[in-house]
């Protein structure tokens, strides 16, 4: 005997809300622990990196995707990954003249769906985990990149912009995870 209600709840929506809410609770806890915005940003980036390192396995297994030809190819694959894991399609834009830097523009960001930043935390990069995920995942496919947020809707910007800069191609033979 199933009760009425719930019918309207889309399981996919609930899934992403579960992730959003868990992430929110995590950020709030880290903020309580460290207080300092920069340190919180650093922790989120670090955790993201570790997630990215593991997530790439899943991505490769699902897509059967091969090596990236160039950075444009990488950008397309990142776009696809956002679609797969967060159900959003960021636009790829703002290429640097040298073609070694681009931006992912997020028009809506599921991570920040319910968030209103508390007063006095203007320096908090709430979604910084995403920058870390990108960095970690790409490192596993021999691409060393820097990734950082340049705009954030939470801070009043018109969109959320994640900048990605290619640093170097890592040698295949290098054992991963060593310093």
């Amino acid at each position: 005997m199933s009760r009425q209600g719930m019918r309207s709840t889309d399981p996919k929506k609930v899934n992403s809300e579960l992730f959003t809410l868990t992430y929110g609770a995590l950020v709030a806890q880290i903020l309580k622990d460290y207080e300092n915005d920069d340190e919180v940003n650093r922790q989120l980036d670090r955790m993201g990196y570790n997630i990215g390192v593991r997530l790439i396995e899943d991505y490769l297994a699902r897509t059967g995707s091969g090596r990236c030809y160039d950075l444009r190819d990488t950008a397309d694959k990142l776009q696809m990954a956002f679609k797969m894991y967060l159900s959003i399609t960021p636009s790829v834009t703002n290429w640097s003249p040298a073609g070694d830097e681009f931006s992912l523009i997020l028009e809506n960001n599921p991570l920040t769906e319910f968030v209103e930043l508390p007063e006095g935390h203007g320096g908090l990069k709430y979604s910084n985990i995403l920058a870390g995920v990108l960095r970690g995942a790409l490192e596993m496919v021999q691409l060393e990149v820097a990734a950082w947020f340049v705009q954030d809707q939470l801070a009043g910007d018109s969109c959320t912009e994640l900048r990605v800069k290619f640093l170097k191609r890592l040698e295949d033979a290098m054992p991963v995870g060593e310093d």
Binding site: E17, T20, L21, G24, A25, V27, A28, E113, F114, V115, E116, L117, P118
Partner: peptide, 9 residues
């Protein structure tokens, strides 16, 4: 319920 879901509320 959106208010409650704000992690800082």
């Amino acid at each position: 319920s959106d208010v409650v879901c704000n992690p800082f509320y």
